[in-house]
Design a binder for these strands. Structure first.
Lengths: 222, 222, 222, 222
DNA sequence: AATGAATGAGCCTTCATTCAT
DNA sequence: GATGAATGAAGGCTCATTCAT
């Protein structure tokens, strides 16, 4: 990714940390991957922990942009939600960015280290605020729901995060071919429609038979 | 948890693996935690890897029961879905079971080792089948949706998994007090209602008062 | 070899010690080979060292017999020497005795442990005395040669020992097929003739041209 | 022997391996002997096995010179054989070379590891070729004897090897004082005379005074 | 600015041994 | 008489780190 030793080190370390975790990644492998001496890591960053933090910083800098573009309040809220979801999904699969950026962040969020607070403040919190704002615009009063409406937001983002966190499981369950046929646009549409329907701002997701259908629905609901 | 060395070892190891990962957990710490000698791990399991597998097996044995109780096809599908969701949530917070059982499984699913295939087959796959059956009963035709309807199922379970995988983030976002006030029943209700509404089998989650804009909705849906 | 645990243990241990040395052989492997519990070795022998001594004792008991049959002073000394040599060679390849007996003894002699003194006294010394007696009978005065004639004896036995100690080298140098074609009788003849010739009690060893041959020899000698 | 860590490590390891064998020598002892850290062995050689190979290489490099000086074909063959024998003996007792060089090689030859093939090719094979050439010059036709004349060569070198391999036994049999009085020159003379006599190229070793039994001996003596 | 050499602590595993039954 | 379970010590090796250059 980068030409200087420092950059190559971050890139190699990011890949290693994302893939094998902090403990599982060895500084020797990282340095050999980056094509630098073992001592370089201490020279440029001080120690392994600081290198990890540097990776995290690089990851959050490059990642936080996309979903926030949905922040434009002049758009209709449905479009904003769709844009937010698509942005998050796209960040996960953006071919212009190293694959490890998202994976590393997810690791940190699932098993926070002392560096997590910073990530939360600079990366997660803004996302959460944006989403809350979109949801409030979409369904006024959602913030006043129990637990300040957090569960609603969680229900939305959890669907997005699933495809990143549980990708291996999804692959195995669906079959590799079927899974790899999923693309960002399809998933963004699905999640947006699922969420909008839940919020009462769109039709139920289930195909044609569900759309017509007050009649059908009546018979099934208890 | 258990009185014999083997059982204490699994318990201590499970906690360590769940908390710090396979590489991060040292056999020395595990053994001292279990109150046994370092060599006991080799005697009972062969090596660290096999101990890990044993932990995974124990975890999946004790965990898989609850959501599957929802399998009873004589119940109305809404109740079954609610039961399934509540079962998964309860398993995550069941005070009768070691906390590490779920955490370990989630780790394995997010970063599969060679032991993952077995877990998937014995634990995940049955859950998935049950959920698909419930969803099909709830909304006939869901299995025929794009990608065999998997995304619909994923949208449901992802909401449940969120509270396990991203608990630390949720805690920090909501605030500790607010987060700890979440209980299984509330979450089960929320997720079930959110999902049923998305499937067109229940009212939108923001309640009747939120549904004034029928007009808006019409324009937005495509 | 033996049916009782003690006997099977000695046999398995002897094989292991002969093949991999004292340090290289593990009690676990030995016990598993013998089909007994790990604790049996402690039960029957006390510890690994004592088991080793027991192996050595068994080896020297069974081995010391053959060359000594050459002790019969009524035979002509050339025949006695031949018998002695053949006896030592035969002991090395005796199919009626475990292969490890000789190998273990050689190991002990090349790298003596505290058990070596006993082996020397009970096994080696008698052999040496017998050989010295034969040599003295063969060439009176040999005992009076420098260093009490020991080097003469060493020159004889060294030829025998070579095929046991350096068997792997000999195999590789000669080629496997050629080496395996060597049999006890041929070697005994060769070594006896070589030694007798050196002692002035037989013709030089070199082939037909050497046998007839004052004439031939004259041309060759300087 | 050497000033750098690598050299000290080889020297300490060589001594340990020669004395206690590969399994019997611990890397901790070796490193403490060499005055370096345990990790140095991994840094310089990779692992214990590679250190062992490095020792073997150093041993064979320094050892192979002396006997081969006898290769000069312009010398009379008797002198060449004597030189060869003396060279081998001298290499074993050369005070300028570490004692372990020969001992380690002998261990490897008696109980070959995977490194033996190389030693054989680079060290043993040239010695064997040289000896065969000398013997052929000494007694034309020896290469045509049964088994390609190998046993004749073995009869010669075995006498030399005896004093290295079985030194402990020889010491105990002869008595320490007597054994330590043996010097290279005496042994070289003895072995050369023994072998030349056997080949019909010299007087019997027991000297003229031992020649009462005229008939037999006359044909053999010069 | 950057590195090859070296370090001590810790890793997982295996050792020979012993205990309680 | 014999064994399954357990032990402390030591095994070889790798770790992240630092030093002198």
């Amino acid at each position: 990714m980068a030409d200087d030793a420092r950059g190559r080190l971050i890139d190699a370390a990011g890949r290693a940390f994302a893939e094998r975790g902090f403990e599982g990644a060895s500084v020797r492998d990282i340095c050999s991957d980056a094509g630098v001496n073992v001592a370089a890591i201490n020279y440029h960053f001080g120690d392994k922990q600081s290198l990890y933090v540097a990776c995290l910083e690089q990851a959050q800098c490059s990642e936080s942009q996309q979903p926030l573009r949905a922040a434009d309040p002049s758009l209709p809220p449905e479009a904003r939600l769709h844009g937010f979801i698509r942005g998050m999904l796209a960040a996960q699969g953006d071919p212009d960015r190293p694959l490890w950026h998202n994976a590393l962040m997810l690791r940190e969020m699932a098993h926070p280290t002392s560096a997590a607070a910073e990530v939360l403040k600079r990366y997660i919190r803004p996302l959460a605020e944006t989403l809350r704002e979109i949801l409030e615009q979409l369904s006024p009063g959602v913030s006043g729901m129990p637990h300040d409406g957090w569960p609603v937001g969680f229900s939305v983002v959890s669907q997005v995060l699933f495809y990143a966190v549980h990708r291996p499981v999804a692959r195995l369950l669906m079959g590799e071919a079927e899974h790899d046929a999923l693309d960002v646009d399809f998933l963004a549409d699905h999640i947006a429609r699922f969420s909008l329907a839940a919020l009462g701002r769109g039709p139920a997701i289930v195909g044609p038979s569900a759309a017509p259908s007050a009649g059908t629905r009546k018979t099934v609901s208890r």
